[in-house]
Computed example of a mutant assay.
Amino acid sequence: MSAIKMPTFLTVESALKDSGLAVTPAELHGLLVGMISGGLPLDDKTWKPLIFDYTNDGMGWPDSALQMGSAIFQCTVAELSTDNFALDMLIPDGTETLMNRADGLSEWVNHFISGLGLVELKLDKASESLKEALLDLEEIARLGIDEEDDLEEQENLFEQVIEHVRICVLTIHAELGQKVHNDASKAVH
Rank of each mutant, 00 (worst) to 15 (best):
M1Y: 12
S2R: 03
S2M: 12
I4Y: 05
L10N: 09
V12K: 01
V12D: 02
S14D: 11
S14C: 04
D18K: 10
D18P: 02
L21S: 11
A22Q: 13
V23C: 10
T24F: 02
E27H: 00
H29R: 04
H29K: 03
H29F: 05
G30L: 02
L32E: 07
G34R: 07
M35T: 12
I36V: 15
S37L: 09
S37Q: 11
G39Y: 08
L40Y: 03
D43F: 08
D44F: 11
T46Q: 09
T46G: 09
W47E: 05
W47D: 12
I51M: 10
F52T: 09
D53K: 10
Y54E: 14
T55M: 06
M59W: 00
M59E: 14
M59F: 05
W61K: 00
W61V: 15
S64D: 13
A65L: 03
Q67F: 04
M68C: 14
M68Q: 06
G69M: 13
G69R: 00
S70R: 14
S70K: 11
A71H: 02
A71R: 11
I72K: 07
F73Q: 04
Q74D: 09
T76E: 04
T76H: 00
V77K: 04
V77S: 06
A78C: 08
S81P: 03
T82S: 12
D83M: 14
D83E: 11
N84K: 10
F85Y: 09
L87R: 01
D88V: 14
M89G: 03
I91H: 02
I91E: 01
P92A: 08
D93Q: 06
G94I: 05
E96I: 01
E96L: 07
L98Q: 05
M99Q: 08
N100M: 15
N100P: 01
R101W: 07
R101F: 06
A102Q: 10
G104I: 00
G104C: 11
E107Y: 02
W108V: 02
W108M: 00
I113K: 00
L116H: 09
L118C: 05
V119S: 03
E120A: 11
L121M: 15
L121N: 01
K122E: 15
D124M: 01
K125T: 14
K125G: 06
A126K: 06
S129V: 14
S129Y: 13
L130T: 14
L130C: 14
E132H: 08
A133Y: 08
A133L: 13
L135E: 09
L135N: 05
L135A: 08
D136V: 09
L137W: 11
L137Q: 12
L137S: 07
E138F: 03
E138W: 00
A141S: 15
R142Y: 05
L143Q: 10
I145F: 04
I145V: 15
I145L: 13
E147L: 12
E148S: 08
D149E: 15
D150A: 11
D150S: 07
L151I: 13
E153N: 05
Q154D: 08
L157D: 15
F158N: 01
E159G: 01
E159K: 06
Q160T: 08
I162T: 07
I162L: 13
I162G: 00
E163F: 07
V165W: 08
R166H: 00
I167W: 03
C168G: 07
V169W: 03
H173F: 11
A174D: 05
G177L: 04
V180D: 03
H181V: 13
N182T: 07
K186T: 15
V188E: 09
H189W: 07
H189L: 12
